[in-house]
Design a binder for these strands. Structure first.
Lengths: 165, 165
DNA sequence: CGTGATTGTTACTTGACATAACAATCACGC
DNA sequence: GCGTGATTGTTATGTCAAGTAACAATCACG
């Protein structure tokens, strides 16, 4: 009785895929990798939407926050912290510098490296967007218990520590 | 006393970025989007490593599972379930069909669509790889409490439901 | 039966990365 | 001091996944 698709069950899958997907993937739901992927998709989408109102991509805003928190950071350090290649941070730092949010400063003793430092405007921008992102996330987790969230953080951090070894 | 970086804290960021990143990003740690992203990175990496031993990418194995669970599925339905475009499933279904894991069957009444169905080999493959992925995930969450995991699942599913609306 | 929508398909574009090579600079042994 | 090798920022190039656009075949439906 399952093999013959009920004519009533017209797929009608147009845009609202949330309905018929709800139980079509019950096998994959058992994988936490699947659940993380899908949750990550909406979180990143929401954050991206929030950030682009201020002209940031996820990586560039993360870079600004890191530079604010760790003044005189090096581009190589930034690459390591962002888990991307050095060549990638060049574009990001270029952008932040062009918008006068950070400055590249020469450092005495090593003329190869730049000491990255946020400007006052950069710090103000960080604070403003930081709050916006927090609001966006709060809206996503509204209705959840505080203990559930800390438990989730515990699980996520544990998984991250288990990186292939 | 936080502003002046301790000279002892020499960055020394060579390859092992897990150490100096631990507290360099404490601001970003407050965002669950950040934690999800990083955890997702290692989970997907682990799953990818597991799947590629059997010649799958994440999407193609998800497709196989979905087709096993929902026989006579349509490619458009599959695209919706995978949250990708129809043009993308063509390559995936091509691959699965070439490996004799599924078959494209014509359906009476609508000569446009294919009814996707897993072969016996496809079902066996699904079961085998399914167990491997579950083992890989179990290794990642080893040491965590059962209640923590269910709480995490609750949080993740809640977030997913909150998709931009 | 004819207009418009849907399905699978192909070709093209795009975006975000990594890789590779390079000049300038540093570290360090001799 | 000097020369070899490593490091930093940079540019150019490649790659890979996923999306867009267009198309023929087919269906729905007035």
């Amino acid at each position: 009785m399952r093999s013959r698709p009920d004519p009533m069950a017209k797929i009608a899958d147009g845009g609202g895929n949330a309905d018929e997907n709800r139980d079509a993937d019950h096998s994959l739901r058992g994988f936490l990798g699947y659940n993380i992927k899908r949750a990550n998709l909406v979180v990143q989408g929401e954050i991206r939407a929030t950030l682009e109102k201020s002209g940031f991509r996820t990586a560039s805003f993360s870079a600004l926050v890191l530079i604010c928190d760790t003044p005189d950071m090096t581009q190589t350090q930034l690459a390591s912290a962002l888990s991307i290649e050095r060549s990638g941070v060049v574009l990001i730092v270029d952008d932040l510098e062009n918008r006068d949010l950070i400055t590249r400063n020469r450092v005495e003793g090593d003329r190869r490296t730049y000491a990255l430092r946020a400007t006052l405007a950069g710090i103000r921008m960080r604070d403003k967007v930081f709050a916006q992102v927090r609001d966006a996330e709060d809206r996503l987790i509204a209705g959840l218990g505080e203990d559930d969230i800390t438990a989730a953080q515990r699980v996520l951090n544990h998984i991250e520590k288990m990186a292939a070894k």
